[in-house]
Design a protein around this nucleic acid. Sequence first.
DNA 1: TGTACATCAGTGAACGCGCGTTCACTGATGTAC
DNA 2: TGTACATCAGTGAACGCGCGTTCACTGATGTAC
Lengths: 248, 248
Amino acid sequence: MSAKKASSGDRELSVRATDKKKFGSNGSPRVAKSLQQDASLNGEKKIVRRKSGAQRRGQILETARDLIFTEGFSNFTIRIVAGRVGISEAAIYRHFTSKEELMLALLEALFAPWREAISKLVAEKLPFAKKLEELFHLHLHHLLNERLNPVLFFSEAINPQNQRLLADMRKNLSYLAQAVASIVKTGQKMKQVRADVQPEALEAAVLGLLQTTVIRWTLQRSADGLLEDGASNIAELARIVSYSEAEL
Amino acid sequence: MSAKKASSGDRELSVRATDKKKFGSNGSPRVAKSLQQDASLNGEKKIVRRKSGAQRRGQILETARDLIFTEGFSNFTIRIVAGRVGISEAAIYRHFTSKEELMLALLEALFAPWREAISKLVAEKLPFAKKLEELFHLHLHHLLNERLNPVLFFSEAINPQNQRLLADMRKNLSYLAQAVASIVKTGQKMKQVRADVQPEALEAAVLGLLQTTVIRWTLQRSADGLLEDGASNIAELARIVSYSEAEL
DNA sequence: TGTACATCAGTGAACGCGCGTTCACTGATGTAC
DNA sequence: TGTACATCAGTGAACGCGCGTTCACTGATGTAC
């Protein structure tokens, strides 16, 4: 068919890439349209703009991240990722051995800095209420900035085929749970949380508030009022379990 | 191929069905194996055990429910449902116009009684703590008995293709949220909840505890300790926001 | 500074698979006469 | 009670589609000499 010649026209062309930002930056990864047309006019054989493994790998992860964030896992296919990156499907397999490996690599790239940030916060010396507030902000800002929606990953992980993804998500969830538990226990030890409050119930309530906020974010697909309301609820919970002014 | 003759050997056979239980009962829907073999030995042409539309529809919904509950949405295909029911894939389309309609019909069949039960509870006259406790038990027992896991449906609803499923899940979620809000407001009006507690924060905490419990259920695939821990956390939250004994 | 060569990011085409859905057709069931 | 007929739950086979993955092959890149 005559359409065949034009079918791969949106691929990138010649010239060594040195301007690609690394994964995590916010810049647009689009190639200037003019470049392609210039090369087409040459009449020369199409030459691919090769990239080093690390660059391309980062670009694939970045593309997959944005795709999943904006369109969910149902549109996360090798075909679509390859199309957005501007390479063939087969080329994806030069950088990841399977779709599953790509998914797990992405998850790790997104969650590793999140865990590190939480670790640092837990170790800090702050009053109980302030620490909860910081945890909330850290959590939400990280998710928003990294375009990481745990609900999307969690939903995908429930699929029985994704055993490893589920294991990873469990790990991250229990990481958060332990951080909250640690904060609560420290709060009680420091006499900032009422001694008669059952720590398990308080932990569950804090986790519940965090989860509810993220679920709301997922449902409304907008961060409007999210940070304010969530922070306000967390602060109110902290106030309720603290010693009242009369008792101090 | 010679395998063709035996390929549909697990279908049901002749004899009018009058023993089928309606959707919602717990009985096994399996047909006695001997029936099939008897007919095979006759050497006669295979005759299908026809069922009335209502009966078959209920059987399909029941099968879909159990399939989704035990194996998740990734195994929920027309082929598999038809196979388990014991009819052809095409036959499914005599009872539901599309897979989506089947899914929505199932969701409604499962959630309608749940909403009704919540409605009744909200209208009852009970102390705040008791009402929260009842809500928790009602919610969990309903999910366990009906094999309805909202997390599974929610995860499926996030898929952009399932707009109507998402709308239905939103509706059910907001139904629960309003019930909780009503309970909290009544509790404050009746002076059973401290007046200084922000109702929005308390509502969010209660919803969070409910959600956390269901998520835990989904992750561990077992109800062990679920009811006890969840009920205990809800009760503790109710205690914390009530007036202390010294104040009464 | 040239050149030979190993490495590796790229390609197009094809694969087998499972999916939802449709088709023309079959024959059991219920009912009007 | 018998018969003609409309209704409708059933069938097997095929459909087009998108998926993840593999294949033999290409040619740009980096480096050892």
